[in-house]
Amino acid sequence: MKHHIVTLGLAPFLVAQGLYVRQKTPRLPEPAGPRQGKQGTGPALKLLILGDSSAAGVGAPSQQLALSGQLVEILSASYNVSWMLAAKTGYTAKDLIDLLYGMPQSPFDIVIVVVGVNDVIKGTSQTQWQKQLDQLIQLSIEKFGSPRLFFSGLPPMHLFSALPFPLKWYLGKRARYLDDILSKHLYRYTNCQFLPMNMPFEPAYLATDGFHPSPNAYTVWAEALAIEIVKEAL
């Protein structure tokens, strides 16, 4: 209750800070490069990456150095990977649901979902978040032939250097809240796995905008995902 009272009192200031950050923070583009392809030798592995700007690779100079490129590079050492990236800056869980509705049915073995930061920023409620997670999972099952779904945890937004205090405190609390809901909600599903965002959020792991991952962060993230995907594929 105390947290909600403090937040309510800070609301006008938080809104002003948010507008200021939006104006002053450089808007990095989604990097150029292929968003689908086939790479490697060995057993076939069909991979789909869904999500927001981090899934789209913002903060990296190319898709090769972003999450998709680095993950496919690792997996292709052991698998013949057919992969696809469907991600866009600004996407919320609701946007991903709309995207999935428009996608054709196609089998995938692994689906990686990266979402939540924009839900934090836009104030998605607990009820909305849980309902939309259920929709994302159900649609993925219907569209992609019951794949294994890996949901990346939300990053520690209170460590984003682009955000001033108290905005970083507020968004950090919101991110931890949605992240906790996500990790617990996925226990309901045998085909879903939660991967916490475990990496050092030091300057070298943040892009020049102080908000998105750097290529170093994408490396750590891709390696962690690859370990879990290989475990599942064995």
Rank of each mutant, 00 (worst) to 15 (best):
S68L: 11
P107E: 02
Q130M: 05
L48S: 01
K46L: 06
T208S: 09
K168S: 15
L10N: 06
K46N: 11
S62F: 00
I141W: 12
K24T: 15
P61G: 04
A77G: 15
H4G: 06
S62R: 05
S161V: 11
K168E: 08
L10Y: 03
F13R: 12
A226D: 09
L133V: 13
L85C: 10
E30K: 08
T190C: 03
T41E: 15
A11L: 15
N216E: 14
T7Y: 08
Y79N: 02
V230T: 09
S106Q: 08
P200Y: 11
T219V: 00
K88V: 10
Y101M: 08
L171P: 01
L19Q: 14
V120K: 01
A86M: 08
K143T: 04
L14Q: 11
M84H: 13
L48Q: 09
A93W: 01
Q193E: 07
V58Y: 00
L139S: 13
I141N: 15
N191H: 13
L45D: 01
S106I: 05
H185D: 01
M103T: 11
G69N: 02
R148W: 11
S82C: 05
L85Y: 05
H4V: 08
L133M: 12
R22Y: 01
L100C: 06
H212N: 11
N191Q: 14
P166Y: 14
M197C: 05
L48Y: 11
D209V: 00
G33I: 13
A87Y: 02
G116Y: 00
K88C: 09
Y20H: 14
R188P: 05
A93N: 10
E73C: 10
A217C: 00
T190N: 10
K24Q: 09
F151K: 00
L195I: 15
L186P: 02
V111T: 05
M199Q: 09
Q128T: 15
K2R: 14
A86T: 12
G59Q: 02
L186F: 07
L100G: 10
S76P: 00
I74D: 12
P196H: 07
Y170D: 08
K122S: 15
G90C: 08
P31A: 10
G9K: 14
E30W: 07
D95M: 11
V81G: 02
A55R: 07
Y205C: 05
R27P: 02
A86D: 10
K122Q: 15
E30C: 07
I137T: 01
A222C: 02
V120L: 04
A32R: 14
G153R: 09
R22S: 04
T41A: 15
A55G: 09
I97P: 04
A224Y: 02
Q63L: 15
P213D: 01
P61I: 03
E202C: 03
Q130D: 06
L136Q: 10
G9W: 13
G57E: 01
M197R: 06
V15K: 13
C192M: 03
P156I: 04
F201H: 01
R176Q: 15
A207N: 00
A233R: 14
L48E: 06
F165I: 09
S53A: 12
D180G: 13
L47R: 01
L99A: 14
V230Q: 01
Y205K: 02
P203S: 08
F201T: 09
Q126I: 04
L178Y: 09
E30V: 15
K122D: 11
Q126D: 13
H3A: 14
W221Q: 03
R148Y: 10
S53W: 03
S140T: 13
K173I: 10
F144L: 03
A233M: 15
F144R: 00
F194D: 08
